[in-house]
Amino acid sequence: MPIFSQSFRLDQLQSAYAGSIVYPPGGRYGPRIQQDLQLVMLYTGEMTVTIDGRPLHVQPGHVVLLKPGHEESFIFSKTEETWHRWISVHVGALPEEMKHALYQLPETLPLTEEMNKLADLMLGLLRHVPSNNAAILSLGLAAIHLYPTETSRLLQQREKHPALHAARTWIHEHYADEISLHPLADHAGVSPEHLIRLFKQHEQTTPMQFVWSYRVNRAVELLTNTGLTVSEIAERCGFKTSHHFARLIKQHKGRTASEIRQVSWNG
């Protein structure tokens, strides 16, 4: 989507910011008038954003693109904590070609590791520098440009490898639930053997190894960004027991859950 790179430049940014918040069960926010371009990344719980009176339900593991000038209100899960992070950039008046490009994009996308890394970097830097620092502005611009890039990549995945895309999407949306190979293959519309071949060819792993790796990454995010107990995180991320959770965290990350949490809080 070249129109983005042509119409949205670093010198147009006035500020950029990133944040993280956990809402208690029954939490609400708004109404407000959105002032920025904002990416809201949902990790746990549930979120319905009402935009100019139109509700948009966002599932965990997804990012939603919010655009300036609209009235928004947020309703979070009634039964559990809802954790989300956001990246926002303030650009003032948007050129017409930029507005047109923005409204061609999907409102939500699956949350990718690249978007998570940008949020991590911004949150880390904002502890030491202001929101108009050049590095912060550059990361905010990168996040906004990443959204259309991920949109294009998602469309290519759907067209070239629909079964793989269907399986990945199912895992992202249901990783907290019980997942096994045969039902996953049924959802993707292929045999278990073919799904294994697809994952080995394009992800360099098996479907179930992908599931457990994805769960570990989501668990690490909860460890570093929330005060949830290890038992609560294990349950939310689909681990069988706290012992199973601890073993896989150590196996995948080389550190214990306590060490990961201590490093992130001390940092």
Rank of each mutant, 00 (worst) to 15 (best):
L146Y: 04
S264D: 07
A134V: 14
P162D: 02
A185M: 04
L222M: 11
L126N: 02
M208P: 00
E97G: 07
S138R: 15
R85Y: 05
G238K: 01
Y43E: 09
G30Y: 04
E259R: 09
I179Y: 06
L125S: 11
A18E: 01
T256W: 00
K67Q: 14
R158P: 05
I33M: 07
L42T: 04
I260P: 03
N225C: 06
R236V: 01
K67W: 06
V220M: 07
S191P: 09
F74I: 14
R197I: 05
S180R: 13
T149P: 02
P183R: 05
T205H: 06
A135I: 14
L10F: 09
L121F: 08
R197V: 01
L125D: 07
R32P: 05
R85G: 00
F239R: 03
M1Y: 11
Y43S: 06
V89W: 05
T108S: 10
G140T: 01
A143G: 06
A176V: 02
R197Y: 10
R32K: 08
Q35R: 14
Y29F: 15
E80Q: 15
P207S: 08
W83G: 03
I3L: 14
S138P: 03
K78V: 12
S258Q: 15
L223N: 08
G189H: 10
D52M: 04
N217W: 13
